[in-house]
Design a binder for these strands. Structure first.
Lengths: 246, 246
DNA sequence: AGCTCATGTGAACGGCTTTTACATGAGCCG
DNA sequence: CGGCTCATGTAAAAGCCGTTCACATGAGCT
């Protein structure tokens, strides 16, 4: 197999042709394997079949490659959250929970992106484009929270949508960081991270007085009536959001 | 100032006397400054005034030093959470929220420990002692949740204490990670991380049907009556847990 | 065909981690 | 007190990484 390098060189010639992309892909794989801390610029170059100095033609330094990956991650993240939200269909609460699950799914299925985005220790404001991408992703949650806030039961003071969005974000991020990723997933739990987060969000929404049942809503007209008997029993499946304790 | 090294050597002689401790302290300072990723074994040695090879007499490798710090961190963390809980005085809900604030305070005031414990990327199960220390810290939250669960309003199904503990942990960790530490703290927020977490926990507890007012409770006898008018107004300060929207 | 400039190479520097052979001296034993 | 021993520290070296620099290559334009 020692002809590999020469052959690769012969195949591609002196110039790679698409090195930037190849480096991003290589780095993605390496980060998925060994984490952002273990990832090495030289390794990525080797994997792409170029010398250790070549990457510097495309990235100022290792950090810039990392933050490029983080930026892409935020873009894909935004796309997945947007798809999960699906403009609040079929009803706001259901869609909202789907966003929560999408958050966890992303953390689980794209560990490299998630790592670069949230665990690589690179400063949020290092790159203006990065920060913007991060904000766009958050804005999906924020917009969803706004729709949800608009459905708040009348009478009670309306919760600020921004606060709700931050709360949901912190729940999803907390569960993902602690229980849903790599080594952390090895902590033994009585339930899956998905179930854990779903219950958490349901209880939270109930605390805000929302009906937490899932059924189609009027488009955006009158909010469904809150059962007058007591919000604590409103529409939650029997046993509450956490199922029956055995 | 170039006599410094020789003088230090003269002061301490060939043997340091307390190198292990000195290295831990040096590492703590370095991690606080530059994060666990930027921290360097060689730097710690330099700071302690010894050669780069000396640390290997006390730690198998860099990771072992890191996990020693994480372990100490979990011990101090446990102590602070235990103090905050204060065995549920003056009432369970108040004490519970104090635990939440203690979580954030620790993340803020001991960034080096927090970093080593949660952000250094070292596997949770690398070290049995580390894992045990981590579990002891979590058990404080768990025990508090158990006391809280015992106060659950009668009639409704009782929430599993373990689940509550995990929920609270994820909220505190999410807020700390996203908003309360280093670079992340630079995200602009409409409220302080402490307020954010407090509101989050209050809403969550209300979602479980808990009275979220703060007033002395009977020792552990009958839970205070839930005002029959509506849990959504029960004891929460005017404006709800989030203050008045302006 | 010739030129130019983006892209890739190899060598070199300094720094880090870890290992190895050797140095030192604190504490114990006789 | 004298000598031994072993924990603790040192210097040197190997191997890796990030980064820079002068130089090579060849794709695309004129």
């Amino acid at each position: 197999m020692s002809w590999r390098k020469e052959e690769r060189r012969a195949e591609r010639g002196y110039h790679h042709g698409n090195l930037k992309e190849a480096l991003l892909q290589a780095a993605l794989g390496l980060i998925a394997e060994k984490g952002a801390a273990g990832f090495t610029f030289a390794d990525a170059a080797r994997m792409a079949g170029v010398s250790a100095a070549a990457p510097y033609r495309h990235f100022r330094d290792r950090d810039e490659l990392l933050s490029s990956i983080a930026q892409r991650g935020f873009e894909q993240f935004e796309a997945r959250l947007t798809a999960a939200w699906d403009d609040g269909r079929p009803d706001t609460v259901t869609a909202f929970e789907r966003v929560g699950r999408a958050y966890l799914a992303f953390a689980r299925e794209e560990p490299a992106f998630y790592n670069a985005m949230f665990e690589s220790g690179l400063p949020v404001d290092a790159n203006a484009a990065l920060q913007a991408a991060s904000e766009r992703a958050f804005n999906v949650i924020r917009a969803a929270a706004e729709r949800l806030a608009a459905l708040a039961p009348p009478g009670a003071p309306r919760p600020p949508a921004m606060m709700m969005a931050l709360h949901i974000w912190s729940m999803a991020h907390g569960v993902a960081s602690l229980f849903s990723r790599g080594d952390a997933a090895r902590r033994k739990l009585p339930m899956s991270p998905d179930e854990l987060l779903e219950a958490e969000v349901l209880i939270y929404l109930r605390g805000l007085g929302f009906p937490t049942e899932r059924r189609p809503q009027a488009k955006s007209a009158e909010p469904p009536p809150v059962p007058p008997e007591a919000p604590s029993g409103s529409g939650v499946p029997p046993g509450g959001p956490w199922g029956k304790p055995k």
